[in-house]
């Protein structure tokens, strides 16, 4: 996991001399993910490096070290504070990442049939249409409220799943993002499927594939490639909107940040750090998806279509 998730050092052989900006970007990514992974691993293993909940470097050390430097001395207390809260932030990011990735992945497997039904179905097309319109037409926060406050879905979480997270409400949040995300993903995938030329379907049928086989072997492999750019958008949206889980008391990044802020009243610093953390996650996702797009790229399909 460690090496595959970070966008480091796998730089394009095409760009032999990376620009200074690019280098800085990659370096920042390495630092961010290195710090995150180290903090997570330290927590999972029960704190072999530093006690769980403690930063790797003592805030006092940071403060005195920086105070000695003429240029940075003004920021010494601020950066010491950031150091102190960093383990909590990393803990929040963990849930943010898990919620986003699980919701996106599960939502995808609901979205594909929804999109196929919408394009090729008859009665099912209407079912799919009603579902997507309803979920895209109401706010995500209201949907989370329905699931949590209205239906109290937490009580239905099966025993097998309820041990995974400290609190069942995480599953409620994931359910909400899956249902909502599936509607948005279905819409993107539908658009992509529709952009696959009619002749592809005809040709599949002409060699004797059934309609379902043609959709599976011919239409989807192309359509899903066309969908990658908008799918990246959905990924980014989900990272950001996962913050709404805080309002049904899921202790993800925003929740933890807000808790610290309420305790310490240091709003500017905390929300600057939180915003930066989200930005790092979003940029990682974009970078990752660009690589996926390159990886599955086929001349003439998706991206810059040349016909």
């Amino acid at each position: 996991m460690a090496d595959s998730t970070r966008p480091a050092n796998v730089s394009d052989p095409g760009e032999a001399i990376p620009s200074a900006g690019r280098l800085l970007f990659v370096a920042a990514g390495v630092v961010f993910w290195g710090w995150l992974l180290a903090t997570w691993v330290n927590r999972w293993l029960g704190g072999p490096v530093v006690p769980v909940g403690e930063p790797f470097v003592a805030p006092g050390t940071v403060e005195s070290a920086l105070a000695a430097l003429p240029l940075l001395s003004a920021y010494a207390t601020d950066l010491a504070f950031v150091t102190r809260i960093s383990p909590e932030i990393a803990r929040g990011i963990w849930l943010t990442v898990v919620i986003t990735v699980v919701s996106l992945a599960v939502g995808f497997f609901i979205a594909v049939p929804l999109a196929v039904a919408r394009v090729y179905g008859r009665l099912t097309a209407y079912v799919s249409l009603v579902y997507t319109e309803l979920l895209r037409g109401t706010p995500l926060l209201a949907q989370l409220f329905v699931l949590h406050f209205g239906l109290n879905m937490g009580q239905y979480v099966p025993v097998a799943l309820s041990d995974v997270f400290a609190r069942n409400v995480v599953w409620v949040a994931i359910l909400g993002f899956v249902l909502n995300g599936a509607a948005y993903q279905a819409e993107y995938i539908r658009g992509a499927i529709e952009s696959v030329e009619e002749g592809q379907l005809t040709a599949g049928r002409a060699i004797g594939l059934s309609k379902v086989e043609t959709i599976y072997y011919v239409v989807l492999p192309q359509g899903l490639r066309y969908a990658i750019p908008s799918w990246t958008n959905e990924f980014v949206y989900l990272i950001k909107y996962s913050s709404l889980a805080a309002f049904i008391t899921v202790p993800e990044l925003y929740y933890r940040a807000f808790e610290i802020a309420s305790d310490t009243f240091r709003y500017p610093m905390i929300f600057a750090v939180t915003g930066l953390a989200y930005l790092c996650l979003v940029l990682t996702a974009t970078e990752l998806m660009a690589r996926v797009e390159d990886l599955v790229a086929i001349p003439g399909v998706g991206g810059d279509r040349e016909r």
Binding site: T202, A203, G204, V218, Q222, V301
Partner: peptide, 11 residues
């Protein structure tokens, strides 16, 4: 069947 505009599977 052979088509006017080929209809090769693009992927």
């Amino acid at each position: 069947m052979v088509f006017q505009d080929f209809n090769l599977f693009a992927h």
